[in-house]
């Protein structure tokens, strides 16, 4: 039950985009068409679901203070947590590379549609942000898996919705200075207000 609650919370209430502004760069840049937004959204879900639990394992068995005791008792006093940024980003970058290679081998069609977005994901703040939140909130393995997956879903929903609105926006008469980024910011704000109405939902 707690896991379902955590999932709902991280999809709707603590949405990566509307509550923490994470992954905004690609959120704004790749939301001009629904089809590309869909592809990027899927890739983000995929990478988040893999990297958050992986980073949890890394933190639990290597970085945390006393985590190295499984190697030898003498290492109990070693605290490598200051290395977490570098380790997390290395895991993310290599994971993205790995995912790219696997998809290229197994499903060329999917690779064709995701192709350019996969490398972009390595520098998507939502990915690193989830790992850092996971670290900060001290989730366990199951929780971090659920958290990674549902943050991905939340981001996916947000970018699809924005892309759909922006496709419609082509037909409206927006003032010159607001065109593009300006109006997108205002729309995102309004969507954020809509997402605020989910606050307090739990099962």
């Amino acid at each position: 039950m707690d896991l379902i609650n955590l999932g709902i919370k991280s999809i709707f209430i603590e949405n990566m985009v509307f509550a923490y502004f994470l992954g905004m760069c690609s959120f704004l840049a790749v939301s001009k068409k629904v089809s590309t937004a869909f592809g990027l959204g899927l890739a983000v879900i995929f990478v988040l679901t893999i990297t958050v639990p992986t980073n949890w394992l890394l933190g639990e068995f290597i970085l945390r203070e006393g985590a190295l005791t499984w190697l030898s008792k003498d290492l109990a006093s070693i605290d490598l947590s200051f290395l977490s940024f570098i380790m997390y980003i290395a895991v993310i970058a290599s994971m993205v590379q790995l995912v790219e290679m696997v998809i290229e081998k197994t499903s060329p069609a999917l690779y064709g549609s995701l192709g350019i977005f996969l490398p972009l994901i390595a520098v998507n703040c939502a990915i690193l942000g989830s790992s850092l939140f996971m670290d900060q909130r001290e989730y366990n393995l199951a929780e971090s898996a659920v958290y990674g997956f549902s943050s991905g879903i939340g981001w996916f929903l947000a970018i699809i919705a924005l892309a759909a609105i922006r496709e419609r926006l082509k037909y409206s008469n927006v003032p010159d200075g607001l065109k593009g980024l300006g109006i997108t910011m205002l729309i995102t704000g309004l969507m954020g207000i809509a997402f605020m109405s989910f606050m307090g939902i739990s099962i």
Partner: peptide, 19 residues
């Protein structure tokens, strides 16, 4: 104070600057 305010303010700053 909520994230929404930041989107609006940034949107307006962009508008003014681009004008």
């Amino acid at each position: 104070v909520t994230p929404v305010g930041a989107f609006f303010i940034l949107g307006l700053i962009i508008w003014v600057q681009r004008n």
